[in-house]
């Protein structure tokens, strides 16, 4: 399996994948602690356990590519280049947050970084990337101010097994296939839609099989293997960029924690949790890097120490960032306010 063979990739790239996964894991663990300590007012949906998906998928993306994310979005945003400082500042509801404290965890976005946004509605981001791909197509066809930001790109949406039952999923796959748009629909099947197990919310095991209804390729990746996710995604991106249209890519994975921070997830059998914990994407990838002499145990520790520093700094940045003023709530309802004429 070439995709699973570490020798296919350069060491620097592999170490970066490892590092990016550790960043997400530690970012989320710290976010949970910061919330418990009272620094983060809103709720969180931790991405812990699924890091290989975000990192593997986004490693296949470049400039002019766009992602839309979900309520469990921190991992995707970090993997796409989101700065932990502005992300923590947003979680802290401060002025230097990506959304100036107006969005919080569920709405983190930065279109300049290709991040159309996390989303509070399950399945809500799926149609948006069909539109992003339309914009890319338009930019490929014509020059206009701003078209250079989209030319040659692809758009990617992350969503879960739960969202694959939403109408937005089916409508969007049909539309993207019909118009052969450069979209990759990345389903993170973590086996639970909120508290409900997959076999209680749909009759299929492989969500990728739904691709056949829309006449597009349906690929499956091991969502706990960052290289497998990267490899499969690379194929999908190549197809999209050469005009072959969209792909449905299912990554099989598992969240280590509950649906949201504080959910004890008693609805999951102990054996199932143990099975997936043993497949921890970071631990296993670290072991492989050591076995293949690409990293030493001490170097893994160095990565940890570096990331600890990055996140300490990020939390400090958030802590020091000014609170928004209450009156800021009345701004940004509209761009054009016609001098404020009875808009609120």
């Amino acid at each position: 399996m070439p995709n699973n063979n570490l020798s296919e990739y350069n060491a620097e790239f592999l170490v970066k994948l490892y590092r990016d996964m550790v960043l997400i894991r530690r970012f989320e663990e710290r976010a949970s602690e910061l919330r418990n300590a009272g620094h983060i007012p809103g709720f969180l949906h931790p991405y812990i356990g699924q890091e290989a998906v975000a990192v593997g998928i986004c490693a296949a993306l470049g400039k002019n590519d766009f992602i839309a994310s979900t309520h469990r979005g921190h991992g995707h945003i970090l993997a796409q280049g989101g700065d932990p400082k502005n992300m923590y500042a947003e979680l802290y509801a401060r002025q230097d947050g990506y959304n100036k404290g107006k969005g919080g965890s569920l709405h983190l976005a930065n279109v300049d970084l290709g991040i159309i946004g996390a989303n509070g509605i399950v399945g809500g981001g799926i149609p948006l990337v069909v539109g992003a791909a339309l914009a890319i197509k338009r930019a490929n066809e014509a020059d206009y101010p701003g078209s250079e930001k989209c030319k040659g790109g692809v758009s990617v949406v992350f969503f879960g097994d739960g969202a694959s039952n939403e109408g937005s999923f089916h409508e969007s796959l049909n539309l993207a296939a019909l118009w052969k748009l450069p979209v990759i629909f990345v389903c993170e099947n973590n086996l639970y839609g909120e508290f409900t197990a997959q076999d209680k919310h749909q009759t299929i095991k492989d969500i990728a099989s739904r691709s056949s209804s829309y006449n597009m390729p349906g690929l499956i990746a091991d969502g706990n293997d960052v290289l497998d996710a990267f490899h499969v995604m690379t194929t999908a991106v190549e197809n999209a960029k050469k005009g072959s249209g969209p792909t449905l890519l299912e990554c099989k994975t598992y969240r280590h924690r509950g649906h949201y921070e504080g959910d004890m997830a008693h609805y999951r059998p102990k054996e199932e949790v143990a099975f997936w914990m043993a497949k921890d994407p970071i631990e296993n990838f670290g072991k492989r890097l050591i076995e293949n002499s690409l990293m030493k145990e001490e170097e893994l520790q160095t990565v940890e120490a570096e990331i600890e520093q990055v996140l300490q700094d990020a939390a400090k940045y958030a802590e020091n960032s000014p609170h928004p003023e209450a009156k800021d709530a009345l701004e940004h309802v509209f761009v054009e306010t016609y001098g404020g004429r009875a808009l609120l």
Binding site: V111, I116, L134, I136, S172
Partner: peptide, 16 residues
Amino acid sequence: EQALVGAALGASLLGV
């Protein structure tokens, strides 16, 4: 309708 309005929104967000 959901996909077409959502697609319109997604394109608009990217400056189209």
